[in-house]
Amino acid sequence: MDNIITFEDFTKVDLRIGTIIQVKDFPNAKKPAYQLTIDFGDLGTKKSSAQITTLYSKDDLLNRQIVAVVNFPKKQIADFMSECLVVGAVKEKDVFLLHPETKVKNGSVVS
């Protein structure tokens, strides 16, 4: 592997558990996506654009807990400002969201 990182590099990534509290269509995105609002407890809410429309409906996503990186800089995607990165496993072109097995407190650290 050419992209080896150190443990110190990994500790800089702030992975947290959040609950999706709002899901909107994102018609201005280049690829099909949703606009998500995610509750991270004491960290507050953050917005994210997610290209997960092939496997998940808006109803599937509402109130679902997910894993996200919360310490990336904001990124402009079309007319939307994404504030975190929802994490998933990719199989072919589909993204399968990562999530805790049982409900945990929003904002919990993933390590």
Results as ranks from 00 to 15, higher is better:
residue 58 K to I: 00
residue 45 T to D: 05
residue 42 D to R: 11
residue 50 A to S: 15
residue 70 V to N: 01
residue 21 I to P: 05
residue 20 I to M: 12
residue 65 Q to M: 00
residue 51 Q to R: 13
residue 71 N to K: 11
residue 76 Q to S: 12
residue 14 D to H: 15
residue 46 K to E: 11
residue 49 S to P: 00
residue 26 F to K: 04
residue 47 K to E: 13
residue 54 T to V: 12
residue 67 V to K: 02
residue 59 D to W: 07
residue 66 I to Q: 07
residue 55 L to W: 05
residue 46 K to D: 01
residue 56 Y to A: 04
residue 52 I to L: 08
residue 66 I to L: 10
residue 25 D to F: 02
residue 18 G to A: 08
residue 31 K to I: 12
residue 31 K to C: 00
residue 60 D to T: 08
residue 15 L to F: 15
residue 39 D to E: 06
residue 49 S to N: 05
residue 28 N to C: 01
residue 50 A to G: 04
residue 47 K to R: 13
residue 15 L to M: 15
residue 37 T to Y: 02
residue 21 I to C: 00
residue 64 R to K: 15
residue 19 T to N: 03
residue 70 V to A: 07
residue 31 K to W: 01
residue 68 A to E: 01
residue 41 G to K: 14
residue 53 T to H: 06
residue 39 D to K: 11
residue 72 F to Q: 10
residue 65 Q to K: 05
residue 44 G to Y: 09
residue 51 Q to C: 00
residue 70 V to G: 04
residue 21 I to D: 06
residue 57 S to K: 15
residue 24 K to W: 11
residue 15 L to W: 10
residue 69 V to R: 02
residue 72 F to V: 15
residue 75 K to L: 06
residue 47 K to H: 09
residue 26 F to D: 10
residue 72 F to G: 01
residue 30 K to A: 04
residue 31 K to P: 02
residue 30 K to P: 03
residue 35 Q to W: 11
